[in-house]
Design a protein around this nucleic acid. Structure first.
Lengths: 346, 346
DNA sequence: TTTTTCTGTTGAGTGGTTGCATGGGTAAGG
DNA sequence: CCTTACCCATGCAACCACTCAACAGAAAAA
C-alpha cells in the first residue's frame, strides 16, 4: 500500500494538547465543548487528513447507521425504483444503505441475512426470493431484535410490517379491461411458486372471470418462471391448444413480452386476434410494438413508504411495534397491446 | 426491541470454562485448537444462538471484508450486470459487496466515497458519474491506501487500474456498418460531458467517416444527456434540418430508442428512410420494432475482470501495484433498425 | 533432566464514546 | 473579604467484541 497514516482522534488530541474525549465531543458537536476548541479540532482534523472510523464508533454505540436491503435482483426496474425510494428517505435520516441481491436463490438469501446480522446493520428491508419457502432466517432478525420490514414479495408467516400493492385488484382490473375489450378466452401466465403476489394475481384473474360469468378453463393457466423465454414457451403451448385464447394476461411483463414476440413471429395480430397484458410496468413495456398494457406498481412510492414504516421502529424507542400491512393501489396502464376498441379508456 | 441477548464469545467462554481467545480461535478454525474444543465451542455457539460481530473483528483486524461499489445507477442493465460479475468473484473470495448509487450526482459521489472510507471498506470499485470533473475524492482513496479500480466510466487523470471496453472500436464498427448499409448522412447523439466513453465513441464515429471519405457535418452532432426524452428532442432537431440524415448513431440505447419513437410517430420508415443504432445492448433494444442495432459491452465479463484486477491488490502484499488498463473488445449486434440490405451480415 | 510439542491463557490493543470526576472560575451569601 | 455553591470545559478510564503476540503448564520426546 502506498501510505497508511491512520490518523485517529488521539493524534488530533496530541497535536492540540487535549484528550481524545474532547476531540470526540468536538467532532460530534457536543454542547459541552467550547466553540474555540471545536474550531481548533476541526482545523487540526482537516490538516491531519483525519478520516473518522465508523467501525470503532459502531462498535462502541452498537449502532452502525447502515440498513441492509435484500432484493432478488437490483436490475429489475421495479426493485431498482423501490431501492431508490428507500435510499431517499434513509439518506435524509443519515442512514446508509447496503444493497444485496439474493438472485432468487434461497441459500444466498440465508447467507445474506447472516452476513447483514454479523455486519450489525441497524435493520433489514427485504423482498423475499421466489424460491424461499422457509422463513427461519428472517425470524432470526426478530430474535436478535433487529427491525425487519418486507415489501412486495412478502409473507404472512412472519410477524413483520410489510408494504405491498394490491395485486388482486391490479389483476382484476386487467382482466376486467380485457373482458370489456371483448375477450372471452383469457389465458394467464403465473408462477408455480408459493409467492403471494402471484397467488393474488391469479385470484384477481379468477374472480374477474367469475364476476363476468366467463368460465374458468384450467388449460389456460400456464405456470412458469415468468421470464422472457418462459413467456415464449408458454405462448407456444397456448397456440398448440385446440381452441386458442383471445387474450393473455401474464403475471409479469417479461412473460408478456415473450408472448408478444412469439405472436409476432407467427404473424398473429396483437391485439386484434390475441390481446396481451403484463404486470409491473417495466420501462420496456412502452417500447414494444404494440406497447404493452400493464399494471403500474408505484415502486418509488412503495420504497418511500417502506422506509418510513421501517424508521418507525427507531422512533418509538423500545416500545414493541405492532406489525403493519400497508397496501397500495396499483394503476392499470392501457396501451396498444389490448386496445381493440379505439378511444375506449375506462 | 423484542430481545437483545447480545451473546459474545465471552459468554461462550464462560459456559465452557475456557477463555475468549480460545473461543475466537476455535470459531476461526485455528489449528492450535484441538478438535474436541472446537466441537464444543461450535455446539455452545449454536446453543446460545451466537452471532459473530464483524464490527469488532473488523476494528481489530483493520479489515472488513467489504468492498464498496459505486455506480451511477444500479438499474441500468449494464451496471447491474457488471455488479453481478464483481459480486461473483468477490463472494468466491469471501468478500461482501456494498452497492452505492451516485445517481450521476457529483456531491453524492463525494459523500459516498467519504462514507465508504469511514465505513472502512477494504477497497472501492467505481464507475465515475457523468457530472464529475474533479477527482480529488478518488485521490483520497489512494492517500488512505485503500485500493481503487475504475470501470467503464474512467479517467486517466488518476493513477489507478481501469477496465473499459474499446468504445472507439465499437463506435467505429457501428458507423462502418451504417456506411456499408448505404447510409451517407449519419447523425450522432453524444454527451456534452467530459466522459471518456462518449469522447471515444465520437472519435470512432469521426474516424469511420473519414476512412470512408464521408464529410463530417457539425450539425449532425447532437449533444444531450442521452436519455429517452433527450433522444426524442434530438431526433426532432434532426428532422428540422434542411437536409435530414439517413442514419442516427446514438451513443446510448436510450437515446436511440427515443429517436426510434419519434420516427415512428412521424411515420418515417426505419431503417429504409432513416437507420438507427444505439450503444450498450440494453435488454429493451431487442424488444422494439424494429429491434435496435447496438453494441454489446460484455458487462458480466467486465465485472469479473474488474474484480480480478481489484483483488490483485491484495495478493502482492505491500508491493505497489502498477496501474493497469484493460481494454475489452465490444461486439456489434446487428438488428432490424439498420438492416437495409437483407441477409447482409458482415 | 532437558527440550519440544500441544493446548490453552493472559493481557494488551483496535478507535471512538461516555459516565463520572476534576479543577478553575465566578457569583452569591455570610 | 472569605466561604460555599455551582457551572463550565475538559480529563480519566472503562467499555464495545474480538484478535493475537507472548507466555505457561503439562505431556511427550530426547
Amino acid at each position: 500500500m502506498a501510505s497508511k497514516p491512520k490518523v485517529t482522534i488521539h493524534h488530533i488530541a496530541e497535536k492540540l494538547n487535549i484528550t481524545a474525549s474532547t476531540v470526540s465531543r468536538a467532532l460530534n458537536d457536543n454542547p459541552r465543548i467550547s466553540e474555540i476548541t471545536k474550531k481548533a479540532v476541526l482545523k487540526a482534523a482537516k490538516q491531519l487528513n483525519y478520516q473518522p472510523n465508523n467501525i470503532a464508533a459502531a462498535l462502541r454505540n452498537g449502532k452502525s447507521y447502515i440498513i441492509g436491503i435484500i432484493v432478488p435482483t437490483a436490475d429489475r426496474a421495479f426493485f431498482a425504483s423501490v431501492v431508490r425510494g428507500i435510499e431517499e428517505i434513509a439518506n435524509k435520516l443519515n442512514y446508509k444503505v447496503i444493497i444485496c441481491q439474493s438472485y432468487d436463490n434461497y441459500e444466498k438469501e440465508v447467507q445474506t441475512i447472516d452476513a447483514l446480522l454479523s455486519a450489525r446493520v441497524d435493520g433489514i428491508i427485504a423482498s423475499i426470493g421466489k424460491n424461499t419457502e422457509n422463513f427461519d432466517h428472517y425470524k432470526r432478525c426478530h430474535e436478535k431484535g433487529i427491525p425487519l420490514v418486507l415489501f412486495d414479495r412478502t409473507t404472512d408467516a412472519l410477524e413483520v410490517s410489510q408494504v405491498v400493492i394490491d395485486d388482486y385488484l391490479g389483476a382484476y382490473k386487467v382482466v376486467e379491461h380485457l373482458i370489456l375489450q371483448g375477450c372471452r378466452r383469457i389465458a394467464h401466465f403465473t408462477s408455480p411458486k408459493k409467492v403471494s403476489v402471484f397467488k393474488e394475481r391469479l385470484r384477481g384473474y379468477t374472480d374477474a372471470l367469475r364476476d363476468y360469468e366467463i368460465p374458468f378453463d384450467e388449460e389456460l393457466i400456464i405456470k412458469s418462471n415468468l421470464q422472457l423465454e418462459d413467456g415464449r414457451t408458454s405462448m407456444e403451448k397456448l397456440l398448440a391448444l385446440k381452441v386458442q385464447p383471445d387474450a393473455v394476461f401474464s403475471a409479469s411483463d417479461y412473460g408478456a413480452m415473450g408472448a408478444l414476440q412469439v405472436l409476432k413471429e407467427h404473424k398473429i395480430l396483437v391485439p386484434t386476434e390475441i390481446a396481451i397484458a403484463g404486470f409491473g410496468n417495466e420501462p420496456f413495456t412502452s417500447f414494444s410494438d404494440p406497447a404493452l398494457t400493464t399494471v403500474d406498481q408505484f415502486s418509488l412510492t412503495m420504497g418511500r413508504i417502506t422506509a418510513e414504516l421501517f424508521f418507525e421502529h427507531f422512533k418509538g424507542g423500545d416500545t414493541k411495534l405492532v406489525p403493519q400491512k400497508t397496501v397500495l393501489k396499483p394503476e392499470l396502464i392501457i396501451r396498444g397491446s389490448t386496445l381493440r376498441k379505439p378511444g375506449r379508456l375506462p
